[in-house]
Design a protein around this nucleic acid. Structure first.
Lengths: 174, 174
DNA sequence: CAAGATTGACGTATCAATCTTA
DNA sequence: TAAGATTGATACGTCAATCTTG
């Protein structure tokens, strides 16, 4: 019941209704690739977010922070965490506020630099992550990985890596 | 400066740091596919949204509504519009409020059903769409379509179509 | 009472401004 | 004055409740 582009243009080979009046700037083939990519990515995000929210009382953002802290051995400088997530410091700050209020992380000043803080995974935070991680991985397999053939999977990985790299490199530019 | 998962795990064949402590529920290959897909989709959305916002003073949601109205000949029942966008009626209502406040659409009662309204594209709304649509299409080519080989493009289209369909069919279920 | 649509409250992301320490 | 981090205002999406007409 939300953020997806298109439920109508089901067949690729008939003239798509979209953009007709403005001159159909993308041809049918281009439009098909674009809309399916957009739809799939939004539906996947939606499904993942709903699972984490309904079954584990956390947002996808919360989960990403917990995963990274765990992966870093339990603690990480805020600046490093923001960089890993490719988030603004502001966004990280708000997310950590919520996580700290729930007792899932703590902020700990670092001795070497009076300006710096570590985000530290707490026991309850680790427990929540441990509960969520298995079902989360299973869901990713179910909705994204298993529907792909081995060949499709590697093609997708390579293509998405290329596209993500190009966009990440050009950030803030232009 | 926002919503993307990963900037660190650049090489697929070394042990990825994520999920280490919780047992690495996805193997390196699965994790690579998943994170690249997630990163690419978020970066693409971000880039598209920024272009529409910076250069055309509209959100991606605004753009989608304008495109659909234009594609429907200029007017569409709210219920049909919500269905096409795969949005809740509530979300559509809020978006139309903003568009109507800017004079880009109007709500017009339909004579056949006293409950129903058409969203109608106004002249200024059409003009804004006409200005944005070309550059928008060009951007999609640049960041998504052109980086793909012909074979990758068709693989991606088919795979995303399959994944989107499966998720859409199971909505609300379970 | 079901369908079309709206409303208001709440949660999260973004942006610009700010504060503190290197 | 630059880097690390926080703050408050604003915008958008979601949800539950509501209103009106079929």
């Amino acid at each position: 019941v939300n953020g997806v582009t298109d439920g109508s243009t089901d067949v690729p080979d008939d003239d798509p209704p979209a953009l007709r009046g403005t001159g159909a700037h993308l041809d049918a083939d281009e439009l098909f690739t674009w809309t399916r990519f957009l739809d799939a990515s939004r539906l996947v995000e939606e499904r993942i977010a709903r699972h984490l929210s309904d079954d584990h009382a956390m947002t996808h953002s919360d989960f990403e922070v917990l995963v990274r802290l765990d992966g870093a051995g339990g603690a990480l400088r805020l600046s490093a965490l923001a960089e890993q997530c490719v988030w603004s410091r502001s966004r990280l700050s708000h997310t950590l506020d919520r996580l700290e209020a729930r007792g899932w992380i703590e902020r700990r000043p670092v001795p070497e630099d009076q300006r710096g803080f570590d985000a530290v995974l707490t026991e309850p935070g680790w427990a929540s992550l441990a509960e969520a991680a298995g079902p989360h991985a299973e869901l990713i397999r179910e909705i994204l990985l298993l529907p792909l053939t081995a060949s499709e999977r590697s093609t997708l990985g390579a293509a998405m890596d290329r596209i993500a790299r190009a966009l990440r490199d050009r950030r803030g530019v232009e």
